[in-house]
Amino acid sequence: PDSPLARWTKSLHSLLGDQDGAYLFRTFLEREQCVDTLDFWFACNGFRQMNLKDTKTLRVAKAIYKRYIENNCIVSKQLKPATKTYIRDSIKKQQIDSIMFDQAQTEIQTVMEENAYQMFLTSDIYLEYV
């Protein structure tokens, strides 16, 4: 009952916490051309663990903003305007906070749970692996 596959179907979180699951899901998203959503999700987790006193942290926040939010990529399209404005203003004012991407991550996660994750569980990539 606690096989990796049983965990993958439990929740998106369990899938992403498992190395094979995360990589297989990534392969699926690459094919669906929305791998940016997953990379953004992991970037948010990585950012939360960074030391705010490290000058690198501001550069990473800017890099995440530039790569996923400022442009019109799939992540940006799925975020609420207010969420994007909040992040843009935080970066402009250089007010970096560990939780500054949390709201954006939640929004992306909800879309993934409702769409890509459900599609993944019925995809041939997943079924072949099973």
Binding site: Q19, G46, K56, R59, R67
Partner: peptide, 20 residues
């Protein structure tokens, strides 16, 4: 100095699950 892409990649990799 690391490029922006390297920093971002490092950040993503740090959050990816590791082999148990």
């Amino acid at each position: 100095i690391d490029s922006e892409d390297d920093l971002l990649q490092e950040c993503i990799s740090s959050a990816m699950p590791k082999k148990k």
